[in-house]
Design a protein around this nucleic acid. Sequence first.
RNA 1: GGGCCUGUAGCUCAAUUGGUCAGAGCAGGGCGCUCAUAACGCCUUGGUUGGGGGUUCGAGUCCCUCCGGGCCUACCA
Length: 572
Amino acid sequence: MARILITSAIPYINGIKHLGNLVGSQLPADLFARFNRALGHEVMFLCATDEHGTPAELAAAKAGKPVEAYCAEMHAVQAELARGFRLSFDHFGRSSSQRNHRLTQHFAGRLADAGLIEEVAEKQVFSIDDNRFLPDRYITGTCPNCGYTAARGDQCENCTKQLDPTDLINPRSSVSGSTNLEVRQTKHLYLRQRALKHKLEAWIDSKTDWPILTTSIAKKWLNDGDGLQDRGITRDLYWGIPVRKGDQPWPGMEGKVFYVWFDAPIEYIACTAEWADAHGLPDAAWERWWRTDKGAADVTYYQFMGKDNVPFHTLSFPATILGSGEPWKLVDYLKSFNYLNYDGGQFSTSQGRGIFMDQALEVLPADYWRWWLLSHAPESSDSEFTWENFQASVNKDLADVLGNLVSRVTKFALAKFGDSLPEGGSAGPREAQLETDLAARLRAYEGFMAAMEVRKAAAELRAIWVLGNEYLQAAAPWTVVKTDPEAAGAMVRLAMNLIRVFAITSAPFIPDASTAMMAAVKSDDWSWPHDLPAALRALPAGHGFAVPDNLFRKITDEERADWQVRFSGIRS
RNA sequence: GGGCCUGUAGCUCAAUUGGUCAGAGCAGGGCGCUCAUAACGCCUUGGUUGGGGGUUCGAGUCCCUCCGGGCCUACCA
């Protein structure tokens, strides 16, 4: 039994995430977690909300709430949606937790002790009317290069020229519109990533089995221009983790907080501590997942994220870990995803374009979305959601291939043999062939799942379902029953066992349907069919069963047309 | 500007280090079946793999170039 640590990139707190966010990290991570649990491995699957930073403060202000209350509310909302999508986190934490405060401060102290922190004096734009420093991109003005009037302080979106906020003509606060700005002197801590460049590079170079997407982004940042740059890890904000050197004050840094990207990945670790606290467990319980000197040497650590998160997970966070000089676990495999687009354009949180997690669940249950999203996961390139494709995939794969199979088997069995499995009959060459074919596909499925080849795994799973229909069609128990009821009975027994095996193997993708299938065959034995011949005999003659409601309903053309309109515009 | 990724049948996607790799699913066409959610099964029509050039006995697979799409470029996260 292996020990597997899985983290999903932690979603930002300022609003409900869209399906593109979901499929890029949390959903595939959940698939992998469920699969490994099903195999009997010891799994720790973690996620959290990423709560600090300017956008959270501004969103709270817009909502007219204190940022602490706003984040608490939004955390609850996101946790509820995670449950709705059946995301099986062992713990869904918060980067604002006291555990993360202490751990983040601890890492900063260790890095300082190691000589990897540098104080840098710099100038930053302060908005007097907003009473706050503004990040470069929160300053708007006219681009000196192209004259675009809505250029941001970090870069002009129109001509793509990189800018300094002081370059802007007629600069104003993006928050209030105020032009009452001034440049103020401030001081920040920088993590000396350059000092760790060679160590990071050697580590990345050793990861030859990572997705190209992952390593190419990491190498770009390592080697582009002047190479890896030092990074500021503090900000002049209210909402964040106060800058401290371990448990000591940090002279000169009063009133400042750590940069959200410094504390967010540390929350992976802190989240595990939160988990232990929630279960009344001692520190040793979470340390055995993270400290190689305290039991984590046999842990394999997998991270899941969208490509925009890759630099922070391949460079910044490892720099924190390596720089601490302490034996914390580094990621062993980093699975990254491209973006999911929506009907010809991008999902857009700001414009409300596309489907958001709450809306999706209002329209259809989680399994429908899980299946489509995972079977179309943007692994090799950006992929696209269209309602036509969604309707076709869901209706064909779920309703016709799988749902109808369960329906035809249970209804036929009930009509001809009553509500328990018939006796008699024996397996012949056709059944032996099915066992062989199914075993081969099952092995392929397991291989794709273990390799996190999400789309290929989905295709293989679908092919497994098809085997059930092919067998039934060839065996034709509805014909055989007229002349040889016992032979037909044996076919029904096998078909019912197939349903159970399909339920178990499909559960990582469609957990609710799997639960319904197991209820239909009245089984609670979820053990993985390592021994397929035995698994196909698990339900014996005389075992009860029930005809379930249809597992999946079909999406009508009218619904599809309605949803196309409903989700095309601005989110109300 | 620079870098990276990507462009394979109408659609969504596969094709170990270049060598039956030109495939699957859906859609389309034909046949069969009737247990089932007008479901299922079988057979089948589609591509000179974005254009052009090159390397090679042999290239979606390597090189050059052009065209199209996307991402990143470090103070949003």
